[in-house]
């Protein structure tokens, strides 16, 4: 008997008390009832900003037509000479980055090139206000996972329409088959006397540009 069959046989023997006709694929509490709205709609964006800042992310709120300027300004303020721009990044975002080298990852950059870059600019798939979380799904404008891991600085553009209030609301918007990275603030550790230290192996600085909807639309 293979180990697979042996383990499954042991499990089945252990479950003799479970009625044979008990429903298997029926709805469970997490699916049967829709998530309760804990946050009022107009409180969602302020809550995201508050919670991102709580975990030491730097946050700027910008109007859509201010994005290119704010993005270039953030890179200059940080002193970035070269930044990684994932395939599929909207050209409008990087229209004002004169003088900063933009590294294209269409042909994957080597790990050493990633390590030598000053930062990475990405978008995101979803952001969650209740937890101050940004989720990347490796889609256009986000790139493979290593891009937001190896460089020490991550600048992330979040559009208001991609912001949900709570964790359960994020799941239907995400495709489990894609590699997903949930980011809540810069990397951190509390392993030494539970003193929180920001920045261990991942980027030590997370900066977010939150693009508000155009007023009147």
């Amino acid at each position: 008997m293979s180990s697979r069959d042996a383990v499954l046989a042991r499990i089945r023997a252990a479950l003799v008390d479970v009625p044979a006709d008990e429903a298997v694929d029926g709805p469970r509490p997490s699916e049967a009832s829709p998530p309760r709205a804990r946050v009022a709609r107009d409180a969602v964006l302020p809550l995201l900003v508050e919670h991102l800042r709580d975990y030491r992310a730097v946050v700027h709120e910008v109007a859509p037509d201010e994005l290119a300027g704010a993005l270039a300004e953030a890179l200059r303020r940080r002193g970035c000479k070269s930044v990684i721009v994932p395939p599929g990044t909207p050209v409008a975002w990087i229209a004002e980055t004169d003088g900063i080298e933009l590294l294209d990852d269409t042909t994957p950059l080597t790990v050493d090139r990633l390590d030598a870059a000053d930062g990475t600019v990405t978008g995101c798939a979803v952001a969650i206000a209740e937890t101050g979380t940004i989720v990347l799904d490796a889609g256009p404008g986000q790139g493979r996972r290593a891009l937001t891991l190896v460089p020490d600085y991550h600048l992330c553009v979040v559009h208001a329409e991609d912001v949900v209030a709570s964790v359960p609301e994020a799941f239907p918007r995400l495709d489990a088959r894609r590699p997903l990275t949930w980011i809540s603030g810069p990397s951190a550790t509390s392993d030494i006397e539970l003193d929180r230290v920001e920045g261990v192996h991942g980027p030590r600085t997370l900066e977010v540009l939150l693009v508000r909807p155009t007023p009147g639309r």
Binding site: R28, P29, S30, E31, P35, H51, D54, Y55, I128, E130, T131, G132, T133, R145, V167, P168, A170, F171, P172, A176, R177, R178, P179, L180, T181, W182, I183, S184, G185, P186, S187, A188, S190, G202
Partner: peptide
Amino acid sequence: WQDLAVFLQLLPRSSTGERMNPYTSMWT
């Protein structure tokens, strides 16, 4: 997939006392 939402709310708050831990990786 949706069941996972329950545990991503329960675990970080119970474990490190954070609303969410800094990084969660999911791969298929």
